[in-house]
Design a binder for these strands. Sequence first.
DNA 1: TTTTATATGATTGACTTTAATCATATAACT
DNA 2: AGTTATATGATTAAAGTCAATCATATAAAA
Lengths: 253, 253
Amino acid sequence: MKVARHLVEARRERLADLLRQHRYLPLHDVCTQFGISEATARRDLAALSDEKKVTRTYGGALADYNATFASFAERRNLSREAKRKIAARAIALLRPGMTCYLDAGTTMLALAETLRQRPVTPLTIVTNNLLVAETLAELPGIEVHLLGGLLLRRQSVLLGEQAKKSAAAWRFDLVFLGAEGMDAEGITNSQEDVVEFQKTVAGRSKRTALCLDAAKLVHQAAAFLFPWKQVDLLLTDASPAVLRCHGIAAKLV
Amino acid sequence: MKVARHLVEARRERLADLLRQHRYLPLHDVCTQFGISEATARRDLAALSDEKKVTRTYGGALADYNATFASFAERRNLSREAKRKIAARAIALLRPGMTCYLDAGTTMLALAETLRQRPVTPLTIVTNNLLVAETLAELPGIEVHLLGGLLLRRQSVLLGEQAKKSAAAWRFDLVFLGAEGMDAEGITNSQEDVVEFQKTVAGRSKRTALCLDAAKLVHQAAAFLFPWKQVDLLLTDASPAVLRCHGIAAKLV
DNA sequence: TTTTATATGATTGACTTTAATCATATAACT
DNA sequence: AGTTATATGATTAAAGTCAATCATATAAAA
């Protein structure tokens, strides 16, 4: 029998939350948990799936990171190949004993994932990127330090005064930074506070490596980060020829 | 035909890693990815499942947090009811506008999960517990600050000098601490550095609430944390009578 | 109140997944 | 080299899951 609309939506919200807690639920558990038939459970999951809050699997459903790390997860699959290429080059720069900083962003997560598969040890990694930290933690020989700060969930990153202060306590051999745009002038990023933070970190390091995939070439973001002469290394999947024709001259790796 | 043992194990490790990246894989994808039959894929997943590295689902498998937050996840289901009870009492102590610290440990995670479902706002939460931070982040009206420090993955927690320094920058209205044991003398915990840290945090707060489930009653851990008189509030599922007969006299909530 | 729209559970048949068994090739052991 | 142990894929029957359809009760709209 039909049930009031608001009750349905409330149930679906509770379902999304339950799913978030369990990370995965078989269809049957959904039925018993809410005392509904399989058909309704299926319809509920289908609805949540349409809203991209969960992912259906054969026999159940998965909580979506999308629900939590929304924009982050979306971009994650973008130009994946490019990110992998950049990550491989970045890792070639690592030497045992180094202390490195890994920036926010999906490119850095790709770097961390690659590093996880082909570790360089010993290494001290400092980051404000929660997913990077979780990816690298527990690898033997790699010490992970997370900077403190205000948690911005959408980007899964820590920022704010406290983060800047934490960063100031370090000396890095090499910092890897990501950004949103690059052109003949230099590097740009979308948020002022992110740029602030990146400058702080770069100031504490011997060398600074910028990681940008070719898709960032045309794009110009709001906040100016660096002119090219402050960039020690550029890691990109764009060819030298393409870079030249955009008027970019940087030390490629 | 039989294949060398080391190849099997290598494949299973790669599978675990692949799964970790994808969070979920349908059985069929495992087959195509490694070019193996369903039977073998099933056996591989079963093996990883025995090692608690993945969780089998109907039609596929899930990456386990167990693989990463091993001991943490195991304890998570222990005395769940007790933790929920404690969490409910803890949340009753919260008032809009407060700045609170949430400690490491599964009890605090339960608290965070409960808070997520029945939010008190506005609230500033400071923690060194990654799972707590992720649980609470993005809730409207709740600001989450993560302390910096060395990431101890097994406990999913941040510690070390840096963490202590970060904590020293705060003033709390109320801190919630967990511990491993309690007796007539006071509260004990298992690790010296954790205790150190807890003392630092408690020193920065107006009030200190200790959260311990009844299972901790007999247990006595290595490092001494507090005598009872330094505990402002005791949140526990143990009855007053039981506490008395263990010689514990604290302000119950 | 009457009418319309819809949320639900039951039923069905098609399709998938599973666990168990087996033959075989080959790794590991003696 | 000869023997044993086992990792593999194929086959099967049983169980589970799914999408579609339908009758019904009731919420929402008129």
